[in-house]
Amino acid sequence: MSFRFAQPQPRRRPSLTPMIDVVFLLLVFFMLAARFGQEGALDLRIAGAATSEWQGPPRLVRIAAEGLFINGQPTTPSALEQSLSRLTETTSDPILIRADEGVGLQRLLDVMAGLEAAGFANLVLVAP
């Protein structure tokens, strides 16, 4: 009596392709769902919402394509803080900011961030 054993089959290697696909899909999902960087928020008031009458000298900062103006007088970003400090009694006095048509949002935000860094906390955005 003779037994014949079957030829041993080579081991099948599992396919890693489906696992790699799932890992890449998870990577794409988390990259799209993640928040990169910090979101900044600006405390803005819209002109016309004030409950009291305006007091003190005018403090209008106009951001134009050709430069910055305070009450119609040209100024530079470095001299903006000094010029406004002469017009305000405290840093909580309101400062009106108006950006002309065509001025980029980033430029407006840069000027506002500079004023906030200088200590001016009461910024009011005026529509052009």
Rank of each mutant, 00 (worst) to 15 (best):
V61W: 11
L26P: 01
T17D: 01
L16W: 03
F36A: 07
R86N: 08
P8F: 02
S78A: 14
R45N: 10
E39L: 11
D100H: 07
F30V: 15
A41L: 10
Q38K: 10
T51E: 15
R62H: 05
G67S: 14
E81L: 04
T51M: 14
A33D: 08
L60K: 11
T75F: 05
T75Y: 04
V103C: 11
R13V: 07
G56E: 12
N122T: 00
R62S: 11
N122K: 00
R13G: 00
L16T: 02
R107I: 14
T76P: 01
A127H: 07
E101W: 00
Q7C: 10
D43Y: 10
E66T: 04
E101G: 00
R35P: 02
P57T: 12
S15N: 14
A99E: 00
D100C: 05
L27W: 13
L25F: 12
R62P: 02
V103D: 09
I46G: 00
Q55L: 12
V22F: 00
G114F: 07
G119W: 08
A113Y: 08
F5S: 06
A49P: 02
I63M: 10
T90H: 13
Q55C: 04
P18M: 06
M112A: 07
L42K: 02
G56P: 06
Q55H: 10
G56C: 05
R86M: 07
T17I: 02
A65K: 00
A41T: 13
T91N: 07
R4S: 10
R59A: 12
A34K: 06
D43L: 13
R12Y: 00
S52L: 11
G114V: 05
A65W: 00
I97P: 03
L44C: 10
T88C: 12
P128T: 00
F3Y: 07
M112G: 02
L80H: 08
G104S: 15
A117R: 13
Q82I: 05
P77F: 08
Q55M: 12
P94Q: 04
A49I: 08
F24I: 06
